[in-house]
């Protein structure tokens, strides 16, 4: 045990300052309504849904939980059920085999809810595009509030996208 404590003390605090929200990432601001204001100030619960990614976006989402980004320290945590979530963080393209599961996850998330689409594929279908097996971008299947480009987007960009979506709740 003393070895663990020693290592923790030696490691120190790695957490860095979070990024600011980015207005450029925001779209469909008219969707934001007064109801959402209710929820500002409360910890944000996110449900991640992989709708067909190559798994690189997932690697960067995992990194958000590391000590440098310390997403929980910002009051954001990932939850196991869409029924506990304020926000869906969706990677894609949406494969046709995930289309129904994604819609059901969206429907199971209580209103008001936010959706952040992640990665070039989530934004526009990316290199996989639309085909017999792919519906392309997330917005083709469920409404999207903020789309974060990148292949994959760096943790800071993901965090910025999340904060952009959250801060849009303060508007109106």
């Amino acid at each position: 045990m003393h070895q663990i404590i020693k290592q923790i003390l030696r490691t120190g605090i790695k957490t860095e300052a979070p990024p600011q929200p980015d207005d450029a990432l925001r779209h469909e601001m008219q969707q934001i309504n007064a109801q959402i204001l209710h929820h500002v100030g409360r910890a944000l619960a996110i449900r991640h849904v992989d709708a067909g990614s190559c798994n690189a976006c997932e690697l960067e989402i995992h990194c958000l939980n590391n000590a440098y980004y310390n997403i929980e320290g910002l009051g954001i945590h990932f939850v196991a059920s869409p029924r506990h979530a304020d926000m869906l963080l969706v990677t894609g393209p949406v494969s046709r085999h995930m289309e129904i599961a994604l819609k059901r996850t969206y429907d199971a998330t209580p209103d008001p809810k936010l959706v952040v689409a992640l990665g070039d594929c989530g934004c526009d279908g990316g290199i996989f595009g639309e085909s017999y097996a792919s519906r392309g971008r997330i917005a083709n299947v469920i409404p999207v509030d903020v789309a974060v480009p990148g292949c994959p987007p760096a943790p800071i960009a993901i965090l910025q996208g999340i904060l952009t979506a959250v801060s849009s709740r303060k508007v109106v």
Partner: peptide, 22 residues
């Protein structure tokens, strides 16, 4: 099979150079 997004078919629209990114 949930993530099947037609990768192999997608390759068939590509040149040898383009396929590297996919």
């Amino acid at each position: 099979g949930y993530k099947h997004k037609g990768i192999e078919k997608r390759f068939e629209d590509m040149t040898l150079q383009q396929g590297a990114k996919l």
